[in-house]
Amino acid sequence: MEKIMKGKKTSLLILICLFIVLVLVSVGTEKARVKANMSEQTGIGFNNVMADVLWVESIQYLGDVFMGEARKVTEEVAQVLYAKMERITDLDPKFVMAYRVGGLTLSDARPDLAVKLLNKGLENNLGQSWEIPFYAGIISYFRLQDRPETVRYLKAALSVPECPEFITRLLAKVSAEVGSYKEALLLWEVVYETAKTPTEKGLARRHLLKLCSQLISNSKDKDLVAQAKTTLKRVSE
């Protein structure tokens, strides 16, 4: 009996020691997950599959819309589609394709909802997808006529390493439109210096010549005029 009690006590002691080690390992693992940005997963571990099922359903729904009588995204369809995309991206916030397809298809009927969805995508995938801010920028430019927001989105797109070069040109153009001449001048210079083809270089040169001439004759900012003169001289050579 005494032997059994002693054995039990030893087992309990080992259990307590192991539990303390478990707590320490748990804290360490949690820290590693937070550092790796993996601590925000919710549910019982199958959210991504649920998002996939809803995604396939949404694509089929869109197919029915485009093959149906209306053949376009109406106000009613936009509401349904936005709700679907919201649910998908709530379940899987990294689902870049849902933001992209959702943003593009909503842009005709409800550009405000399209930008709202793309903003959510931008928040959840900061620095990972240049397409999301690019689409938001395009919708802001053409549909909402909001130039300052377009500049903000294009800048966000440019912060992604894989961002294609043409966005620099686009940002330079829009920056000039909103009166950010200094920025426009700088961006066109970047395009001019980094151009890989003669066509691209020629295009950048043409824009620089036009912008510099405009600045020299109209701007009151002496520094900017001086910079424009220097640039003009360099690209004219």
Binding site: V25, T29, R33, A36, M38, N48, D92
Partner: peptide, 17 residues
């Protein structure tokens, strides 16, 4: 499963832990 499906890099400390 989420990060693995996206081919994201998972630190060894997370797996080892």
């Amino acid at each position: 499963r989420g990060p693995v499906a996206y081919n994201l890099n998972i630190p060894g400390s997370v797996i080892f832990g």
